[in-house]
Write a protein that binds this DNA or RNA. Structure first.
Lengths: 203, 203
DNA sequence: CCTACCGATCGGTAGG
DNA sequence: CCTACCGATCGGTAGG
């Protein structure tokens, strides 16, 4: 009995969080009202508060879901015995995969985190800063190994992350072929640049 | 007399628009209140309405100021007798220059346009769509001339524009040297990619 | 440019 | 999970 009740509550809350992500993306955190959310869930506004503590709690949850997934991924990638350029490739593909499979959540985490309240706000900003530094360190390693050309690693990270998270057509390309083509295209442009590259081995 | 009064009104409105850009960037359009804005300007909230019609009018003005500047620039660049890659380079440098010199306005135009009301909303979206198509056409031209490698032009445009507009450190690098270095770095990464490129002529 | 104020809407609570 | 409702705040107006 207690088990079933718990499961029901969790699943109810999950619905609320999922619908919140959609609404926050569509209208922005501030413009989306709890009455909008209640309507999307199918209950009265006051009933939401049996499952959540506050509107901002929903934002915390979305932001840290995303942040945690990226943190775990970079832990994993850092530990692999592969080249720097392969690590960059893996991380970029993970970012793209997140955009495709958790579009609403990632979008909200990326554009609405400013509305977090302060214990969470600084925590989130710290995690972001740390993630980017670790990503930059991978690139710097690649530069030292001459796998990657001499550029400012921090700038390169920002370019790549914003390039990927800025694209709004990820979720529209649900057909796998289109998504894969888009992904390869992105990697080609970000890693290889615009100008044609003659085969190195052929010299 | 009439002349002076007009000038005074214009300059007063300019102050309001400028302060609005700062506030809308800091808090987002919805979270920034007219009372916040009044305080920043140094008057009571009701007094703002002697200079502007509504809060959304401020957003229109910011968004179309930016959109018009980009439209004029692409008109100019398209007409120049230079290669496709040089046109791309010029446009990217203009985007960077806009981020440095009109940071608040460009940022707001980029992230808050969703809150425009509908005659303006569709107009703005149309201008954006057209601008990106024209930019993509330049790249497609470059591909046909073998100056640019075979990639999806529309994706490349999105990557480049988001890569530039995502960077938040532009306005912090007011020192000219730092800004220029950052700019060259960005172009190098976006145009040249990450991997080292052997000199073509040397083969 | 200000004082005074309005109707609407907001996030959230009480009590059942 | 609902009805009923609260205090705060919002964009904006009237009138001077």
């Amino acid at each position: 009995m207690a088990r079933i009740k718990t499961e029901k509550n969790i699943s109810r809350k999950d619905v609320i969080v999922t619908k919140a992500a959609i609404l926050f993306r569509e209208k922005g955190f501030k413009a989306a009202s709890m009455r909008d959310l209640a309507e999307a869930v199918g209950v009265e506004a006051a009933s939401l508060y049996n499952h959540i503590k506050s509107k901002t709690e929903l934002l915390h949850e979305l932001c840290f879901n995303v942040a945690n997934r990226f943190m775990h991924k970079i832990d994993e990638v850092e530990a692999e015995p592969i080249s720097a350029i392969e690590k960059v490739d893996k991380l970029l593909r993970f970012h793209i995969s997140e955009m495709i499979h958790h579009y609403e959540e990632v979008y909200v985490s990326d554009r609405e985190w400013k509305h977090l309240a302060d214990p969470y706000l600084s925590n989130f900003q710290n995690q972001r800063r740390i993630y980017r530094k670790r990503f930059a360190a991978i690139i710097e390693n690649g530069i030292r190994q001459k796998e990657i050309k001499k550029i400012d690693a921090a700038t390169a990270v920002l370019i790549m992350l914003h390039a990927i998270s800025g694209i709004e057509s990820w979720h529209r390309s649900t057909q796998k072929i289109s998504a894969e083509a888009l992904e390869d295209n992105m990697i080609a442009i970000l890693v290889g640049g615009l100008t044609p590259q003659p085969p190195v081995k052929g010299i």
